[in-house]
């Protein structure tokens, strides 16, 4: 029994020694092929290993080998080109029914003469009376920047904001920005206009991308879209209303809802 155990230990030791000897052979080979000294003369590529906590990767700076000449006769010399910085897995934007960005500026929207932003500085109410960040008044204050201090953050899941235009208008367009600092997509965006604050009389849904009716406002046929600095412009087709309500139910980054600005272009109802 003892002998068997001893034999096993001997076998382990021999194997360990064998493995170590193999590694030494490899490491010897490695040391002979050590990468060229970062700043060795004659070497035009320099490697600096950054000891930064988050980026221990290479932050190499490369110099172009020969002067390059462009058609105008300019000579580009000693151009230091930063090497790519390694990054982690980027964010996924897997959203069903997502429209392709235009890739250019939005076409102009035409409205009758005299149509203007009738939502400017009008009162705003919300299902979340106490926003986590910002004030509801920010929605109609004319500030469309995505900077901190310019947006309102409402609670998670389905939330809505309602703007009282304080009079009946023929509404031609509704332009709004959720949060455009990142290319995120808000879910279940529904925009309705109505003549009463409870949205019972003369309710018109002018936009709905809730494809599975998860917000309970009916199945929408509009497409999801990515937030951009241009905002989302909706053709309201001259719908007559006093109240404008916008719903959303979280976004691709989290369950929260955000608004930067809402503009309603209309004319007093005839």
């Amino acid at each position: 029994m003892m002998k068997k155990g001893f034999n096993s230990i001997v076998k382990v030791c021999v194997l360990v020694l064998f493995a170590m000897s193999l590694c030494l052979v490899y490491s010897c080979k490695e040391s002979s092929q050590e990468p060229a000294s970062p700043n060795s003369p004659g070497q035009q590529t320099t490697d600096n290993i950054k000891s930064d906590a988050n980026d221990t990767e290479k932050t190499t700076v490369e110099t172009s080998k020969e002067p390059t000449t462009d058609s105008a006769g300019w000579v580009a010399i000693d151009i230091k080109l930063p090497k790519p910085m390694f990054v982690g897995t980027p964010q996924d934007t897997k959203v069903p029914n997502l429209e392709k960005p235009l890739g250019r500026k939005r076409d102009p929207f035409y409205a009758p003469v005299g149509a203007k932003n009738v939502a400017f500085e009008k009162p705003v109410t919300s299902t979340d009376d106490l926003p986590i960040i910002g004030e509801l008044e920010m929605l109609t204050d004319g500030d469309k920047e995505a900077a901190d201090g310019s947006y309102v953050e409402l609670g998670p899941f389905k939330q809505s904001v309602t703007i009282d235009l304080e009079a009946e208008y023929n509404i031609y367009a509704i332009l709004f920005w959720h949060y455009h600092k990142q290319a995120i997509v808000y879910y279940d965006v529904v925009v309705q206009v109505a003549s009463d604050p409870d949205f019972i009389t003369n309710v018109t849904t002018v936009f709905n991308n809730d494809i599975d009716n998860s917000a309970g406002l009916g199945v929408g046929k509009d497409m999801h879209y990515s937030e951009t600095a241009e905002g989302k412009l909706i053709d309201a087709k001259g719908a007559r209303a006093r109240y404008v309500r916008l719903y959303s139910k979280g976004n691709t980054s989290n369950d929260l809802n955000h608004y930067i600005e809402v503009e309603v272009f209309g004319k007093p109802a005839i």
Partner: peptide, 21 residues
């Protein structure tokens, strides 16, 4: 945001590529 990956792979045969944020 260094959001240019995987371009360094596809441009690996070009020695004078600079990557900026």
């Amino acid at each position: 945001g260094k959001d240019y990956w995987p371009l360094p792979w596809y441009l690996r045969s070009f020695p004078n590529v600079g990557y900026w944020t």
